[in-house]
Amino acid sequence: MPSSPTGAPLLAARSLCLERGGRQLFRNLSFDILAGQLWQIEGSNGAGKTSLMRILCGLSRYGYEGSVERHVPFLYLGHQSAVKALLTPRENLAFHVSGEGQYGNEQIESALAEVGLYGYEDVASHTLSAGQHRRVNLARLLLSDTSLWLLDEPFTAIDTAGVDALQALLASHVAAGGAVVMTSHQALEVACDVHVLNLGAGATV
């Protein structure tokens, strides 16, 4: 267990409150995400997990109180797979709109191979399954070198082998000094300890 990582937080959330349709989803939620930590946000459906993720990554800017500071570039994988059906997986990654980096062909091929899409590089994406679309999206985790990952339900539509590979990837990323914040209903079997943030009780950790 690496010693508790000190230093500036990668992401600092201060007294977040969100109210939706008359219900108080969470109230003055404050926490810091430090390097080398894996956070899992749990909660029943409609507890506001996705809303919290969208607040953390800056997609929603209005409608909530409190503040979020992100001190490092981050990578956000949302519910949708952000894969263009008309482009091939290679083109999807080469022309990706998230503007992280310019990836060469070999990098893209090795990343696609690692997420189990070897041989599918130049197939039109509309012939691929939803699970394969999500794997193209997960390939971005291998390509990018950003330290903070914000993942919204990364395991959906991924088979068991894929889930194990992804958990191993998260563990190695965290061990290498990165940080992961993710929402998921499944319990994680990961080599490092997991900070759990339960939205159901609206408690702060």
Partner: peptide
């Protein structure tokens, strides 16, 4: 619209490059 429907627009908004140029 097509980028909005498959989630690419969200990724564009999070890109470090200025949005009004993109």
């Amino acid at each position: 619209r097509s980028d909005f429907e498959d989630g690419s627009l969200e990724q564009l908004l999070l890109a470090p490059q200025p949005l009004f140029l993109s």
